[in-house]
Amino acid sequence: MKIIKRIYYTLEFIGFYLFNLVKANVYIAWDILTPKIHMKPAFMEIPVRLETDFGLLLFSNLLSMTPGTISMDISEDKKIVRVHVLYYKTDEIMLNEFYKMQEKIKRITS
């Protein structure tokens, strides 16, 4: 039963990854092809709530491939990821999104 659930979550995560991939590329293409560049770059620090190293790898990979974020650095104790954000809104909205991603990853790796 547990294995079936985990397989389901993994498939859901792959779908989520592919959807974000297409979205990120459409955003980038739209921004580069239109004459006005509406970017608002900023640096952010995200607290990490994952236990395993594999989860951290998945999370930083997902960050680099989703719209407007690139993972830059990881602190020594693996608790904070520094991120460069391209479309900055407010701290709360962005952090909520990142926590949602981490929940999805936690369900697979824990």
Binding site: L21, I28, A29, M39
Partner: peptide
């Protein structure tokens, strides 16, 4: 077309961090 977009972004964007956004996502897609 997406590879072409990566190259245009490499020319058009202003600093290294934004350029890396274009140079990482678009060519792999």
């Amino acid at each position: 077309f997406f590879i072409l977009i990566a190259s245009i972004g490499l020319i058009r964007l202003k600093d290294l961090y934004s350029r890396l956004h274009a140079a990482t996502k678009a060519p792999s897609f």
